[in-house]
Write a protein that binds this DNA or RNA. Structure first.
Lengths: 216, 216
DNA sequence: TCATTTTATGACTTATGGTCATTTTTTAAT
DNA sequence: ATTAAAAAATGACCATAAGTCATAAAATGA
């Protein structure tokens, strides 16, 4: 039966067209200021049709995030293709993540705001996604693990946990930059400084051993 | 004129009563599921009256956050009253913050969700608040500064910036725990583990120097 | 007592996410 | 081709909730 397959394809195509339209609208006006009617207009479909393909506005938001996450995972995998040490691959991943944030701020924003708002009842599917081997976090976790094996990364903390910690820490700073950047100037530092300095902290820790003269 | 002063007091009292009512409602049902009618009912006032004291629902949310932040700043100041080294005071502040998160999860949630949602146009007043010397972040920054002076904390990064970095990093992990805790169990780690391990990372960094046998 | 000012009210407006009876289009058998 | 059944699409409609405003009540002070 070639017809049902073609229909399947068309259904998928339509679904993707709706996501395309939603991206345009959400990225332009912001998620909460966009209405389903806006999206329907952009997609040249009626609102009712959107609900044949997505359960809710939130679901549409999630679909966009999934796109962004898949793209991110791809970038991270590319970044650590070279077979260097775990520590080196970790640095490569960090650079790739920051590049992603710069190159695709809309996806990054979508993901961040989804994760926060999601608190009030996240799609459980999202938790499943995070655990999948192809998720950005798990790509990162494998690199950490490798660093543990080759001796370049501490191994007293389980790899997945260390991945979560580092990932969350970087996100914390990015989140700060994202919503409190007006605050940064009075403090006299730019976003890039902040991230650079964060890397120093991630590398060496915060305390200074008075016996050594490092971190002068 | 004693009357106008009494009126001033009464106005403030009413304002506070409204915040009390809003806290009860928001903490019970969550911010987004609560309605202004709910709050009006709890406060035994009409909805219109709420809008005489607050510009919007968001504004009410903000007022609750301010309470939470003032309380937090108080706890942090108490925690570093003892005149120890900057590093020791820093640890005390960290402990106090985690205790606060545990003791007042509702305030913590209110602050976190305000900061995320706020992204779409934060009250500029909030940025002012953060810069005030009595804000939690600035209390922390002074301790970091002290650590720089007494040689227990690295001084290659400006104190305020380092404060922002550490603060954001801890918030990042707390945020992860807050909205992805269902994810933690499959990974095999508890929230407390995660925070403990984060402290190790903050202290020592992530890389292992192959020449030493620390972090085995 | 009463005019003026301040404070409070709640019906009303507006906006928007989501639904569903109805219509249009497609399919496939006659 | 015709047509009945299935699938897809529509948009008027509903429910909810934030925010407004004309009106009413209360407080003030002369």
């Amino acid at each position: 039966m070639g017809i049902s397959e073609r229909k399947e394809r068309e259904k998928l195509k339509r679904r993707n067209d709706i996501i395309d339209a939603a991206e345009k609208v959400f990225f332009r006006k912001g998620f909460s200021s966009s209405t389903m009617d806006d999206v329907a207009g952009e997609a040249e479909l009626s609102k009712g049709t959107l609900y044949l393909y997505f359960q809710s506005k939130e679901d549409l938001h999630y679909a966009i995030c999934l796109r962004g996450l898949d793209l991110l995972a791809l970038e991270l995998r590319k970044a650590c293709e070279e077979d260097l040490t775990g520590a080196e691959n970790t640095m490569a991943i960090a650079r790739a993540y920051l590049k992603y944030v710069n190159d695709f701020p809309n996806y990054f924003n979508a993901i961040m705001s989804f994760e926060s708002s999601a608190m009030t009842g996240v799609d459980p599917a999202y938790h499943d996604y995070i655990l999948k081997p192809e998720s950005p976090l798990m790509v990162f976790a494998r690199v950490i693990e490798k660093g543990g094996r080759d001796g370049t990364i501490r191994r007293d903390i389980p790899a997945k946990e260390l991945a979560v910690i580092l990932w969350s820490q970087v996100n914390g700073v990015l989140q700060f930059i994202r919503c409190k950047s007006p605050f940064l100037e009075p403090v006299g530092s730019a976003a890039d400084d902040l991230l650079l300095h964060q890397f120093h902290v991630l590398k060496d820790g915060i305390f200074r051993n008075p016996d050594t003269n490092e971190n002068m």
